[in-house]
Design a protein around this nucleic acid. Structure first.
Lengths: 214, 214
DNA sequence: ACCTGAACACCGTTCAAGT
DNA sequence: ACCTGAACACCGTTCAAGT
């Protein structure tokens, strides 16, 4: 492609493109070299090896995700706003986030947001270990949720019923489900992640902050 | 090892061992063959290829995880008990669970527990879409949490401070953190996942079930 | 300092051939 | 029906050699 000298930055850029579009497995040193129009071994000179190339990509992602400003009036809504923003940011880079997580760097990604969360927990009246627990609960909830969502997206599809004849494709028809057809229908539908996320987050935060008023 | 005829079951068993101990990446067709004392190609005859071998392993895991009986008196404690049991089960097979999840089969693993959750939500007075949302919120919370935990275990270690000099290894020292040293200390310590899980779960369930009494 | 091709040791998979 | 070795196309990585 480019006839200028190869730089480390170019390598990273091309690698980032590949990973973003087709996932980390699609990133092969040879393929990357071909894409850049150089010999495979040049890449090694610039980034060491595949593993440190991925590390560099992850590092980039971590630094890209900056601070997040809360919006809203009450601490609860402000915390939820931070959570939703975080979800949005993470969601935009599913592959990268999975890699960040594999490398145990999730905490790093959360440091900026943590500061905001601590502040809100504090103004809500939470102190000490209890406040820390609340902050961590929110963090875990966000990361966990996004991980579930990402895997769901990256995976082929939830039980497309291709291979074996499933006993029940939809939710189990228990006695209580039969008594509440609306519930059964709702569970048979695929979940709306955005909605579910906000609802769970609100529920969680409400309980956590309620402890501050005792 | 065994001089008897090779069976599909033996292949699966050996593969399961390998994955449980050293993760899916450690499972190579050639290594597996060596371990079983056969030619690589024999394995192909029994299980098709690597991908369907992993699929079979996942299928096994999904079937292994049976129904979970709630314990406790109130719906809230019973739901939390189911969640904790689920966490325990998932936690025992981190690699397999990650694979289940990658394949988008998480819902399948949750079907038995879902039934129990639906029942409890119902006796707590939740109906229809709201009950479904509560059940799903609990499911997502459990899976998400376990995924976060698993990655944390399987990953090398959280920012061991080896490579680059970090600006701050521990939590950020904000104004509020300085005012609340107990909080700062709590955040600097690594989280106790079991404790955090139970606390978040209780908080979430409490809020979710509170909607049933309106 | 930067780039190259050849070579090594590993993959998963196929296929014709054996019994 | 079950197992085998040879072979193919792919990896990541190293290394001596170029400029």
């Amino acid at each position: 492609m480019s006839r200028t000298v190869l730089t480390r930055e170019q390598v990273l850029e091309a690698a980032d493109d590949l990973v973003r579009q087709h996932g980390p497995d699609a990133l092969t040193m040879r393929g990357l070299a071909a894409r850049l129009g150089t010999a495979v071994t040049s890449i090694y000179w610039h980034v060491g090896n595949r593993e440190s190339l991925l590390d560099a990509l992850v590092e980039r992602t971590v630094e890209e995700m900056g601070a997040i400003q809360p919006t809203g009036r009450t601490p609860a809504t402000r915390i939820v706003s931070v959570a939703r923003r975080l979800r949005g940011e993470l969601h935009a880079r599913p592959h990268l986030i999975a890699m960040v997580h594999e490398r145990g760097l999730t905490e790093r990604v959360f440091l900026p947001a943590q500061r905001a969360l601590v502040r809100e927990a504090h103004t809500a009246g939470l102190r000490g270990a209890r406040a820390a627990e609340a902050v961590r609960a929110v963090q875990f909830q966000v990361v966990g949720f996004v991980l579930v969502e990402c895997a769901r997206e990256l995976a082929p599809a939830e039980t497309p019923g291709r291979e074996r004849p499933r006993k029940t494709t939809s939710a189990p028809k228990t006695a209580s489900a039969r008594k509440d057809p609306a519930l059964a229908r709702a569970l048979a539908r695929p979940a709306d992640p955005e909605r579910l996320f906000t609802a769970s987050m609100r529920a969680l935060v409400k309980s956590l902050l309620a402890q501050g008023n005792t």
